[in-house]
Design a protein around this nucleic acid. Structure first.
Length: 108
DNA sequence: AAACTGACTTCTC
DNA sequence: GGAGAAGCCAGTT
């Protein structure tokens, strides 16, 4: 029986799995981490960001496709990064209809 | 240990 | 579709 990893670690793994050119919502990350009702906790983890550049936290957006947070320069930088990776945008928000990541795994 | 905070989500007007 | 309020979770202090 494997010892369950911390919520933070699961979130980091889930985020690291997001393929380039796609984005995932905080809700999805929380869902994969085993806490479907904890999108806030996910956001908080990102804000503390112990992952640094190891995890593509810029690929995580709000459920409505809006870019939230991002401390290294603001959502503007985040948007530029996503655009550079080929993420489709619909105005100021991400076009989830095209660039939302479809997680193949159900959970960790 | 308790209380507060925050990069969210969902409901209602 | 936009704005406001309530609910929820884990981390930090």
């Amino acid at each position: 029986m494997r010892k369950e990893k911390s919520f933070v670690e699961k979130v980091r793994m889930a985020t690291a799995r997001i393929p380039r050119g796609k984005v995932a919502t905080y809700g999805q990350i929380a869902w994969m981490a085993g806490r479907p009702r904890a999108p806030r906790a996910v956001g908080m983890i990102m804000s503390k960001n112990k992952d640094g550049e190891k995890v593509p936290c810029h690929r995580v957006v709000a459920s409505n496709g809006a870019l939230t947070g991002y401390g290294m320069g603001g959502i503007g930088i985040k948007k530029q990064k996503l655009l550079a990776e080929g993420v489709a945008f619909k105005g100021p928000r991400v076009d989830l209809d095209k660039s939302l990541w479809n997680p193949k795994r159900k959970r960790f």
